[in-house]
Design a binder for these strands. Structure first.
Lengths: 142, 142
DNA sequence: TACTTATATAGTAGTAACTCCTACTTGTCA
DNA sequence: TGACAAGTAGGAGTTACTACTATATAAGTA
């Protein structure tokens, strides 16, 4: 945890960002959350410690973090943005019924090659396999 | 085109949906659009022919269409929902700068196997590879 | 072809999730 | 330590739905 915060400070400095208490708090909440929180979720948790952090700050900060690679914005379907602090390469399964997004790991997927023609035409910075369907909990509901 | 509309009517009947002029118009706009329109885009185009179709109807209709498999909702990032009338198996590249979503085809990606453990635990209904980065237009801008 | 009824629709109001703006505050570097 | 660029709070504004209700209509039935 201490080490994480050291790394966080380094990354901020590297990108010319100031290390503020708000950013620290948001980052801590991110690495402590096992799911994929939205800005509102982070905001609610932080308010317990810093009662007057605004939602706007949380939103801006999360987007800033995504720009410097500290988190990723998950591909959703027009719902609120969800942020993913898991930086290990991984893939997503999304439940169409409850909306939950579940991380999974798969080496075959990780090692997928980007087609040559796309590599030449675009700059590719991210690659992920998305599966969708019904999760185990929802499957057993009816 | 005539044929498409016949098929459309059949699918509606099969799912117990009424064939209304609004639905017809929305479907026609969908199959005529090469990009991935949002509800607002469809609404604007339709208003030229049916000036008093409400946006709510367009939204509901598009979601209904996605439920019966006529279109797919694209995984986005909290922006407006985008609909994909392309039913051939394909994958997406998303430009992080301009937000455009570009279809591409790749047989290796199509034939990816779903890992056994996931297959057992969940019901998998969809599979897609998402790439992201900077598109050719944005790359040449600065 | 007229009737019936479950669906679908338009229009209005309401809500969620940002996003912008302005005045104030605070890290950072010289 | 002081100047200034960068960051923040709070409120107002915007976008994209989403819910509600009265009216209209597709499609089966007599």
């Amino acid at each position: 945890m201490e080490k994480d915060l050291k790394i966080f400070e380094e990354i901020c400095h590297k990108h010319g960002l100031k290390v503020t208490p708000q950013r620290m708090a948001i980052y801590k909440e991110l690495i402590n959350s096992k799911e994929h929180p939205s800005a509102v979720m982070i905001h609610e948790r932080i308010r317990k410690y810093y009662p007057n952090v605004s939602l706007d700050t949380v939103n801006r900060t999360l987007i800033t973090f995504s720009e410097i690679g500290l988190v990723q914005i998950i591909e959703g379907r027009g719902d609120p943005k969800r942020f993913d602090p898991n930086l290990r390469p991984h893939h997503h399964f999304r439940c169409l019924r409850c909306g939950e997004i579940i991380d999974f790991y798969n080496e075959e997927y990780d090692s997928l090659e980007v087609p040559e023609d796309l590599k030449e035409k675009f700059i590719i910075t991210g690659k992920r396999v998305n599966l969708e369907g019904i999760c185990d909990k929802c499957k057993n509901l009816n």
